[in-house]
Design a protein around this nucleic acid. Structure first.
Lengths: 203, 203
DNA sequence: TAGCTTGTGGTGCGATCGAACCATAATACC
DNA sequence: GGTATTATGGTTCGATCGCACCACAAGCTA
């Protein structure tokens, strides 16, 4: 038989169909038949590559997460070598915003899964780790900024990092709902960063 | 026939069943049969009181919103007469946090509806107004605080209000996912408020 | 008392759901 | 060149879906 096919690519093709459907109508629109049609494969193939529906939802989420991580890494790498703390933190936070179609859709998929994260342990595990890691990363960068004199000493790095990450996530929601433009979102982030990365140390 | 029944109460009884199911398993678990069972009424009654499934989802959301608004008003009134700007802003922001079972469930219901807000105009209309009103309220309170000398003049009231509200919403998500305790959430809010409502004006 | 209106239960229909089953073409391995 | 394995399509089954329809009891109106 055709061993020619790339298993991962097939799974990705199907996962993307899941994302599109979830983005449009929530998980209740992610039926095996609809996914098969959207992915332009037979319903049988879904079972072959993913098994049951729950496994399909889980698998599609895992692929989404892997994508997000890699893209974030790429974007950070694009900042060039030896970027300032300010620029790195900014890059991390902007990554959370739905600034392009790709990130927008990604966050919509997360939104569609959200309630499941609370009841399905398998899904929860996949989605639980990222935010804390981000927060610690930002906190560490701010602390480094303090040692470099780019950030006032009286700033609470951990508390500010937590609020920055949470703020970015909240803004993300507002942008998705059309309550705020992407430009406004970036401006809000920059306003807070300007406060924290005050060039003139005063503390 | 039995006019004795209170229409609104019946609708509420059914709406609460919708909330519980949506909270547990998302909108895909909100089927007419399941809602009927959960509300302990016949499936036929759902149709009588709400009509189609879409109308049921819309109606249940409207009731939830009305509840949220009233409870928020009550809680703000409990602050006593002539509370300080700081206390009012704090009350508004804390209202966004899932600090008790009621608010937690409410936000979970919103989460379950989220993706629908983007595609269903009727739902979107119901959920679109609140955040902006909140933001303007907070911005106004901060501006008042500036005139009273409770807030430094160099604070950008609008930008800070927007970030506070978004931050509270983001923190809410983290609390729901168990990534942060309610106590930590309140502490984060208070940390930002302490910065903005700095007793000693320095700007 | 007759009849209309409102609230309630039950039931049925066509569509669709997730999942299993059966068939088979293509190829790698020996 | 056989043969086991991998990839794919098609089909079917029992359950459940949303929703419409029918029946009827309980009150109000006349």
């Amino acid at each position: 038989m055709p061993r020619q096919v790339d298993h991962d690519q097939r799974r990705r093709q199907i996962a993307e169909a899941v994302w599109r459907l979830a983005t449009r109508g929530g998980l209740e629109d992610v039926t095996l038949r609809q996914v098969a049609t959207e992915a332009e494969v037979s319903a049988r193939l879904l079972q072959y590559y993913f098994g049951t529906r729950d496994q399909l939802l889980l698998g599609a989420l895992e692929i989404l997460n892997a994508d997000a991580e890699q893209r974030a890494r790429e974007r950070l790498a694009m900042l060039g070598e030896a970027p300032g703390m300010h620029a790195i933190v900014r890059g991390v936070l902007l990554e959370l915003l739905p600034l392009d179609e790709e990130r927008r859709n990604r966050h919509l998929v997360y939104a569609a899964y959200f309630v499941r994260f609370l009841s399905d342990p398998a899904l929860a595990k996949v989605a639980r780790d990222a935010p804390h890691a981000l927060e610690n990363l930002v906190a560490g960068l701010i602390a480094q900024g303090q040692e470099l004199g780019q950030v006032p000493r009286d700033i609470d790095a951990a508390a500010e990092a937590a609020f920055l990450v949470s703020g970015a996530e909240g803004i993300q929601t507002a942008v998705l709902l059309g309550q705020r433009t992407p430009e406004e979102a970036v401006a809000l982030i920059d306003h807070q960063l300007a406060r924290i990365f005050a060039a003139t140390t005063r503390g």
